[in-house]
Amino acid sequence: MQRTKFILGGTFILAAVVYLIVSSTQASKEYFLTVDEVKAQGASVVGKSLRLSGAVIGDTIQYDPNTLALTFEVAHVTGDNAEIEAQGGLAVVLKTASSDSTLNRVKVVYVGPKPDLLRGEAQAIMTGKIGADGIFQADELLLKCPTKYEQAVPEQASTN
């Protein structure tokens, strides 16, 4: 009798947790896409929660301190690690991506304080939605600067 009660109770909790996980996953999942994938899928991704990553183009960064609107463009960077390694590491890939004008680019708008790490050749990872106009409205903006923290050899190296 007690045993049944414990089993029932346990099953109930288990079911509740599974429900919580499944429903929360459904409600807050974000598709991780590259710039090329966003371009390729076109209208089908409009309005969906996306997580987009790309290389920041330094010249396109604009900031309006009145409205705190930050706009910039990101260029396509592959999401495949093996490919990144084959091309010489993330730092190299980002550098080439941000200077290669033949690559696909997406315009990003973010409203808020300008992040300390935002600059050309940084990797931007943005969460938000893409509009019908093809502009990505970011709610969250995360930046990584691999050139600064991953390159293990001093810069004097190249001039020697």
């Binding site: 996953t25 807050s28 999942k29 974000e30 598709y31 999401g79």
Partner: peptide, 14 residues
């Protein structure tokens, strides 16, 4: 085959 992530709202809700 599709990379999908969950953010803070997932953890908060669950």
């Amino acid at each position: 085959g599709q990379k999908v992530t969950v953010g803070p709202p997932f953890y908060e809700r669950a």
